[in-house]
């Protein structure tokens, strides 16, 4: 047995294209151009029902984006707090943050959605959009807490020691020395979570939020065009995630500017 350490890097989100994948024959380009071609073909040669469908969906797309952006903001804040909490030396803060992560990660998102909307609905009347944002934000906050923790811990301890010896206190060290460096490590997995969250917003259609999927289901249940409807919905989700992953890949490349020699 060799002593070589193998690192398996698997994410649950869409694969973010690596910056060096520049060629026209990369997986990203193939998927992107292929999807666009299929979409164009369907719209040009079968305008009915695809064009009709496309006109039916836009408010759903807007809702999906609203939910995604609001919950990613909430998740980033909660994730940072949870990540800092889990490496905190204060026992109580540490325990609270760890418990939050343990509980949320152990409950399926779909169940959390039902719980916040229908179970807690008996006690507090949360509007549907707010319930969706809270459920997604809290769920992904817990996932991101782990990412933040790993990112912060990846920074060499020498950095902390150096900064403390220069007279920074612990919070200044975190703010000015550790986090700016950790951000670069954290960004790719956070981007993955971002895309995964966008896809998971399709679950909110269960609590009657009119997102892309719910709008599509309404269309299909009336017209019985199940094949056409779900084909178009899959294409729309795929296009959005492909564009997002390319965008994140570019941001990542910018941030890694200082690492290149």
């Amino acid at each position: 047995m060799s002593e070589k350490k193998v690192i398996i890097d698997v994410g649950d989100g869409a694969a973010i294209p690596r910056p060096e994948d520049k060629g026209l024959l990369s997986a990203w380009w193939l998927s992107f151009v292929g999807t666009l071609a299929v979409l164009a073909y369907l719209l040009i040669f079968h305008p009915d029902p695809y064009l009709r469908l496309l006109k039916f969906l836009p408010d759903g797309i807007v809702v999906t984006f609203q939910v995604t952006i609001a919950s990613i903001c909430l998740a980033l804040i909660l994730g940072l707090l949870a990540g800092l909490g889990r490496i905190s030396r204060n026992r109580i803060v540490n325990l609270v943050a760890s418990t939050y992560v343990e509980i949320i990660r152990g409950i399926p998102l779909l169940v959390q959605l039902f719980y916040i909307y229908f179970a807690l609905g008996r006690i507090v009347r949360v509007p549907d959009m707010v319930a969706a944002i809270i459920a997604l934000g809290f769920c992904y906050g817990a996932y991101m807490g782990e990412v933040f923790r790993a990112g912060i811990m990846s920074i060499d301890n020498g950095q902390t020691e150096a900064s403390l010896s220069l007279g920074f206190n612990r919070s200044q060290t975190m703010r000015y020395v550790i986090l700016p460096q950790a951000w670069r490590t954290i960004l790719p997995p956070v981007g993955n979570e971002f895309i995964a969250l966008l896809k998971d917003t399709s679950l909110v259609s269960i609590i009657a939020v009119s997102d892309i999927l719910r709008r599509g289901r309404e269309f299909a249940s009336e017209s019985f065009l199940y094949f056409e409807t779900y084909t178009l919905i899959a294409i729309i989700y795929l296009l959005i995630t492909l564009i997002l992953s390319k965008f994140l890949s570019n941001v990542e490349q910018r941030l890694s500017h200082y690492e290149r020699r």
Partner: peptide, 9 residues
């Protein structure tokens, strides 16, 4: 839907 009506949404 009935439950949502019941809680007032």
């Amino acid at each position: 839907a009935i439950e949502d009506l019941n809680v007032g949404r």
